[in-house]
């Protein structure tokens, strides 16, 4: 009997809490008809944004506004759609939160901005531009498009990006790439770590640089690369037996190497001012 009363009280309390939290939230469902390669921009200062590939010719938006201190401004002009979380006076990082779930055509070009995020983009083949002050950023299963990311402190994760034109600028956020390949992959970090795990394929240019952040690249034994690594004030190490090449700069032993592996189809540059650089061989 005592147990039943206790359980009932818990249920009541949870229900009240749920009502209290739900009372301030507003759900908005939007649907837009679009043509080929539409452009969708989302500006949401506080709150998560998830963009996934959905059906062609339509954009479906689900937005949950956490209070009446924030409004959703929408616009559509031709093939362009804009979504802005408009903060009203008194809004803060709690009351100004809006959660976005957006489905777009796979060939859509998407621009996303958020201070807190997190930001997640998945299965797109169009161009993706993401700016996040502190937002964790993840891009998954992309192909054939540009992926441009700018962040101050948010961690950046790119997974399974093929034939991409990737450019990332990060100050303190760590950048992690797994199975990322393309004609162009560039990461410019300040103190954030750069981690790459892939095959450096597609006969591309891979350019990773940092000020103080460590750079770690893991590649398989079959990788075909011309790799130049140098840290002005940090250790540099390679697990591979590279065919040595000369470098046109003066460097102390252990702070630089230049060599090729296989047919040297891709160019890999690993530069840091004082970070540690390690080219690892993948253990399978």
């Amino acid at each position: 009997m005592h147990t039943r009363q206790c359980a009932a009280r818990i249920v009541v309390v949870l229900a009240l809490v749920g009502v209290a939290f739900g009372a301030g939230t507003v759900r908005k469902d939007l649907r837009f008809k679009v043509g080929k390669r539409p452009t969708i921009s989302v500006d949401n200062q506080y709150g998560p944004i998830t963009v996934k590939a959905g059906a062609a010719h339509q954009v479906i938006v689900t937005a949950i506004l956490h209070s009446d201190k924030v409004e959703l401004d929408q616009s559509k002009s031709g093939n362009r759609i804009g979504l802005v979380s408009h903060l009203l006076p008194g809004a803060d990082a709690t009351s100004g939160v809006v959660e976005y779930e957006i489905q777009v055509p796979a060939d859509a070009n998407v621009t996303v901005q958020s201070e807190t995020g997190p930001i997640h983009v998945e299965k797109l083949r169009g161009d993706v531009t993401i700016e996040g002050t502190n937002a964790p950023i993840s891009v998954l299963d992309g192909a054939d498009g540009h992926v441009h990311v700018k962040t101050l402190n948010g961690a950046v994760s790119l997974t399974n990006i093929r034939n991409g034109h990737v450019e990332i600028v990060s100050m303190g956020g760590d950048v992690t790439m797994s199975s990322v390949s393309g004609p162009f992959v560039k990461v410019n970090s300040n103190s954030g770590k750069i981690q790459y795990d892939g095959d450096f394929g597609a006969e591309g240019n891979y350019d990773f640089s940092s000020h103080t952040g460590n750079i770690e690249a893991v590649a398989p034994a079959y990788a075909s690369i011309d790799v130049l690594a140098r840290s002005s004030n940090g250790p540099v190490q390679s697990d591979f037996s590279l065919e040595p090449k000369h470098t046109p700069f003066v460097a102390a032993v252990g702070s630089a190497f230049h060599g090729t592996l296989g047919k040297a189809a891709s160019s890999v540059s690993l530069f840091s001012f004082s970070g540690r650089i390690h080219l690892k061989k993948r253990q399978n």
């Binding site: 590279l242 040595p244 003066v250 460097a251 102390a252 032993v253 230049h258």
Partner: peptide, 16 residues
């Protein structure tokens, strides 16, 4: 006088 190319096989550190 100062230019010293550095190769992966070099073993002597270059003063800088």
């Amino acid at each position: 006088k100062l230019y010293r190319p550095f190769g992966a096989g070099d073993t002597n550190p270059v003063a800088r």
